[in-house]
């Protein structure tokens, strides 16, 4: 009789962990070997990946398909600009505060939009994003429609020279990416992860088994807002300028992020990585052809949803049965010797 044991790690995931550590170390050292243009691209990839992973947690794991995550990107950015400008707070501290501020704002938003189900939830979050955009546009202290810039003295407080500043922001972006991954990974491996899977599969059934679906969803929504705000603050620290249109941009902070997750494989931790790479590759390759890359991305996302809802990563798993971030518990039968 063969024995059985429950395991999570796989050979591939262990190799992957080693590979990731080496890759990350190389990236951390990038200021010493890469040129500034490449570093900016890597930083952009990092924050997009962080946004994608957060949206994936929300939509892919908790079933909350939000089209309004730009609320927290913009709000995070404005928190940075407002706190540094108004109260002279150091930018690093302001970035740290962007997460909690967004989490705070996300609670009333959640209480309103959670009254809508499914697709109407999606449009409801979108309406809120419009509301945030309009409200911020009429607040003079936030610069109204034209927005705010970081003053030179604040910029200098990060580092006295440009290279030092770029290095600091680059490292912070990498750190945020790692933190976001760790957060999502930890959440999914915790008991909340199981509750999420149960809710995604059947909300009434999981409720009857004692899963508090409302609280679990609220938790995920608030955590996601927290992370997204954090990333948003960093994004606009790099841009040095924010306006309502840029901060609460549906296209930049939600549309492309959704496409990344869908193309890579929604509901998997690996998928957003692939999706982000596809997005960046298409955008760079088709940079001279206007918005063709968006049309192509949209078409690929539609095709993926229709023909292979598991996305690129789903195809890889189906083909090779590899799992790089083992969040599932797997039952392994040991071969009798």
């Amino acid at each position: 009789m063969a024995g059985a044991r429950v395991e999570r790690g796989t050979r591939a995931s262990q190799l992957w962990a080693v590979g990731i550590t080496i890759g990350l170390a190389a990236l951390v050292a990038m200021p010493f070997w890469g040129d500034p243009g490449d570093m900016r691209l890597v930083a952009e990839m990092a924050y997009y990946l962080a946004l994608a992973q957060l949206w994936n947690l929300l939509a892919g794991y908790a079933g909350l398909v939000s089209v309004g995550q730009q609320i927290y990107v913009g709000l995070g950015g404005y928190t940075l600009f407002y706190l540094t400008d108004r109260f002279g707070i150091h930018p690093f501290l302001a970035i740290a505060l962007a997460g909690p501020v967004c989490a705070l704002f996300s609670i009333p938003v959640a209480l309103a939009v959670f009254r809508l189900r499914g697709a109407y939830f999606a449009i409801g979050t979108w309406v809120f994003a419009e509301i945030f955009l309009l409200v911020v546009s009429i607040i003079p202290a936030l610069g109204g429609g034209s927005g705010l810039s970081l003053t030179p003295s604040i910029v200098r407080s990060i580092s006295s020279n440009r290279a030092g500043r770029e290095m600091a922001i680059f490292w912070m972006t990498l750190a945020v990416l790692v933190v976001v991954f760790a957060l999502v990974y930890w959440l999914l491996r915790s008991r909340h992860g199981l509750a999420l899977t149960a809710i995604r599969d059947s909300e009434p059934a999981s409720a009857s088994l004692g899963v508090d679906t409302f609280r679990t969803k609220l938790l995920i929504y608030v955590v996601t807002a927290f992370g997204t705000g954090f990333v948003g603050a960093l994004i606009f620290l790099q841009k040095l300028r924010i306006s309502p249109e840029a901060g609460f941009s549906l296209n930049d902070w939600t549309v492309v992020v959704i496409f990344m997750v869908v193309i890579g494989g929604i509901g998997t931790l690996e998928g957003p990585i692939l999706g982000m790479l596809v997005y960046i590759a298409l955008r760079e390759l088709l940079a001279d052809f206007g918005t063709i890359y968006l049309i192509l991305l949209g078409a690929i996302a539609v095709a993926v949803m229709l023909k292979a809802p598991g996305g690129l990563w789903g195809w890889v798993v189906h083909r090779y049965d590899v799992h790089l971030f083992p969040v599932r518990r797997r039952l392994r039968f040991e071969k009798p010797d």
Binding site: A119, A301, M305, L306
Partner: peptide
């Protein structure tokens, strides 16, 4: 019709994709 079923994601994301495609085609 291919997207209908108990899962709300496919219709939502497919029409979302179509939305972006139409907007950008009109823009082009």
């Amino acid at each position: 019709n291919l997207t209908l079923g108990s899962d709300i994601l496919p219709p939502l994301l497919v029409t979302f994709g179509i939305s972006v495609i139409i907007q950008n085609l009109l823009l082009e």
